Computed example of a mutant assay.
Amino acid sequence: MDGAATPALELRGIDMHYGYVRALDGIDIAVHSGEVVGLLGDNGAGKSSLLKVMSGAHRPTGGTILLHGEPTVFDSPGRSTRAGVQMVYQDLALVDAQDIATNLSLGREILRKGPLGRLGFVDRKAQRRRAAAELDGLGVRTAAVTRPVEMLSGGQRQVVALARAATRVTGDRDGVLLLDEPTAALGYEQTRQVRALIRRMAEQGVACVLVTHDLPLAAGVCDRIVVLNRGRKVADVATSETDNDQLVGWITGARASMYGES
Rank of each mutant, 00 (worst) to 15 (best):
A30D: 08
A23C: 12
D91H: 15
S257W: 04
Y188V: 14
L106C: 08
G260K: 08
V36Q: 00
D15I: 05
L186R: 12
G78F: 00
V234N: 13
A143Q: 07
A185N: 12
Q98E: 09
E70M: 11
M16H: 07
S262P: 15
V209C: 05
D75I: 04
A163G: 12
R124L: 14
V37H: 05
L67D: 13
L186V: 09
V95I: 15
L9Q: 02
L217N: 02
V88Q: 13
S105Y: 07
A5C: 08
G253F: 03
S240R: 15
N43I: 06
N43L: 00
L9I: 08
I110D: 13
I100H: 02
G56W: 11
D214G: 12
M54K: 07
T61P: 08
L11H: 08
T102M: 02
D99N: 15
Q190N: 11
A196I: 00
H32L: 15
E70C: 10
L50W: 05
V221W: 09
G34T: 03
D15G: 08
E203Y: 00
G171A: 10
Y18R: 11
G187E: 12
I225P: 00
S49E: 04
A238E: 09
L119Y: 04
Q98H: 06
G205H: 07
R157L: 15
E70K: 15
A101D: 10
R82T: 10
D42R: 07
L24A: 04
M201A: 12
G69E: 11
G117K: 10
A218P: 14
V145W: 07
D214P: 12
A126L: 08
V234F: 10
S49Q: 14
S80Y: 02
N43D: 13
R118V: 05
R141Q: 12
V73T: 13
Y188L: 14
G253M: 05
R157N: 00
G3M: 14
V85A: 04
G205P: 14
R112K: 15
G26R: 12
V206D: 06
R147Y: 03
V31M: 13
H32K: 11
V221F: 03
E70T: 14
G205Q: 15
R124E: 10
V88T: 08
D245S: 09
R79K: 15
G114K: 02
D180R: 05
D96T: 01
I65S: 03
E181K: 08
D96N: 12
P182C: 14
V169W: 05
E10G: 13
G187K: 09
G114S: 12
A235S: 05
Y89F: 15
R199F: 00
L119C: 10
R224N: 02
L39W: 11
D214N: 11
T61A: 02
A235Q: 01
D136N: 11
